[in-house]
C-alpha cells in the first residue's frame, strides 16, 4: 500500500514539518544529516511518535490526524519496522522473534517459515540473537518485520550497524528483496550510497524540512542544496556488468576497473572525474567519447556540463568557468569527453 503523510510534530524544541509520500511497490529514501528529523518521521509513521499536526494516511486509512482526534496505535497499523540496531528480542530464538508478530495478531504463521526460507535464515532458526553476525541479524529483523504481512515497510538506517565489507553485500541483497515486496518501503539513511542503490525516489530532509525530492538519478545529479551537493553531486547509472564493461540501461557502455563484478549494478560517476577536450584526447583514460553538450549550469565555482552521445549514458561533467570559455562550451556544441575506468565506482544491485 501507499503512504501519504504530512508530518508535524514538535518534541523537545525540535520541529518537524515534512510531506512524505510513498507509492505501492516504491522504495523511498529519507536522506539527510543526523538530527534532520528522519527517524522522528519514521517513528511518526509507525505510530511511536504521535503527530501534533498534519495527518498520516496508509492506503485508504487515516492512522493519525490530531485535528480530527484520530490516532491508531502502532499495534493496529500494520506497519513493519526494521530498527537501526535491529532490536531482536534477546531472550527469544530467531524463530520466536520472527513468529512474534503473527502470534501477537493471531495471523498466519506460515509466513514465518516463508520468510525464514526467503531470507535464507532457516538454519539459524534456533539461535539466539547474540549468536548472529551483523548481516544475519539484519536478515532476521527484516524477516520479523515482513512476517506480519505489513502494508508498509519502514527501515531505520538498515545498514548502519554493519561493517563496510558486509554492508556492500547486504545492500545488494536488500535491493533484491525490496524489489519483491509489493507495498511501499521507506528507508531512513544518512548514507548517500544506501539511498542511491536502494531507492527509486529520494526525499532529502534537513532541519525538519524537506529540501529536495525526486527520482533517485535526478536528485543525485542535480542536488539543490549545499548539503546535498557536498554529499552527492554524482551521476547514477544503472546497468549490467560483464568482464569489466557495464552496459547501461539508458544506452552506451562504460569500461570499469572492476572486472569481477557481474550482473545488475549501480555505477556512480563523479562529475569532477570527467575531462572535456576540443580534439580527440590521447592518454590512459579507457572511456573516450565524442559527445554533445545538453546543458551548462553554473554551480558556485564549478560549471556542470550535461553531456549526451550515442556511445555513453547521459553524464554530467564539472569543469572550471575558464575551461568553459577556452573550449567554447555551450548547449549544442560538440566536445570530446574522457573518463578513467578507475574513477568509476561499481556497486552490485
Amino acid at each position: 500500500m501507499s503512504v501519504t503523510a504530512h508530518l508535524v510534530t514538535g518534541v523537545e524544541g525540535f520541529d518537524l514539518d515534512a510531506e512524505i509520500t510513498c507509492a505501492p511497490g516504491e522504495t523511498v529514501a529519507l536522506l539527510g544529516p543526523n538530527g534532520a528529523g528522519k527517524s522522528t518521521a519514521l517513528r511518526a509513521i509507525a505510530g511511536l511518535q504521535p503527530l501534533t499536526g498534519g495527518s498520516i494516511r496508509i492506503g485508504d486509512d487515516v492512522v493519525d490526524e490530531p485535528g480530527r482526534r484520530i490516532f491508531v496505535p502502532p499495534e493496529n497499523r500494520r506497519v513493519g519496522v526494521v530498527f537501526q540496531d535491529y532490536l531482536l528480542f534477546p531472550h527469544m530464538t530467531v524463530r520466536q522473534n520472527v513468529a512474534f508478530g503473527p502470534r501477537s495478531t493471531g495471523s498466519d504463521e506460515n509466513l514465518v517459515t516463508h520468510w525464514l526460507e526467503a531470507l535464507s535464515i532457516t538454519d539459524l532458526a534456533d539461535r539466539r540473537p547474540a549468536q548472529l553476525s551483523g548481516g544475519q541479524a539484519q536478515r532476521v529483523a527484516l524477516a520479523r518485520a515482513l512476517a506480519t504481512d505489513p502494508h508498509l515497510l519502514l527501515m531505520d538506517e538498515p545498514l548502519a550497524a554493519l561493517d563496510a565489507a558486509t554492508r556492500m553485500e547486504v545492500r545488494g541483497r536488500l535491493r533484491h528483496h525490496l524489489a519483491e515486496y509489493e507495498h511501499g518501503t521507506v528507508i531512513v539513511t544518512h548514507d548517500p550510497l544506501d539511498a542511491l542503490v536502494l531507492a527509486d525516489r529520494i526525499i532529502v530532509m534537513e532541519d525538519g524540512r524537506v529540501t529536495q525530492e525526486g527520482p533517485t538519478a535526478e536528485v543525485a545529479s542535480r542536488p539543490r542544496t549545499d548539503y546535498l551537493a557536498a554529499l552527492l553531486g554524482v551521476t547514477l547509472i544503472r546497468g549490467s556488468a560483464r568482464e569489466g564493461v557495464v552496459t547501461c540501461s539508458d544506452g552506451g557502455e562504460l569500461v570499469v576497473s572492476d572486472t569481477h563484478v557481474a550482473g545488475d549494478v549501480v555505477v556512480l560517476v563523479r562529475p569532477q572525474a570527467i575531462s572535456l577536450h576540443r580534439e580527440p584526447p590521447e592518454g590512459s583514460a579507457r572511456n573516450v567519447w565524442q559527445t554533445s553538450v545538453t546543458s551548462v549550469d553554473i554551480h558556485g565555482d564549478q560549471v556542470r556540463v550535461g553531456l549526451t552521445g550515442p556511445a555513453h549514458p547521459p553524464l554530467v561533467a564539472a569543469v572550471t568557468p575558464a575551461a568553459v570559455a577556452e573550449l567554447g562550451i555551450a548547449p549544442g556544441s560538440a566536445v570530446w569527453a574522457s573518463l578513467k575506468a578507475t574513477d568509476i565506482s561499481v556497486h552490485p544491485a
Binding site: V81, F83, L87
Partner: peptide, 8 residues
C-alpha cells in the same frame, strides 16, 4: 516499540 509495531 519493536513489539508494538509487530502487533502486540
Amino acid at each position: 516499540d519493536a513489539a508494538r509495531t509487530l502487533g502486540a
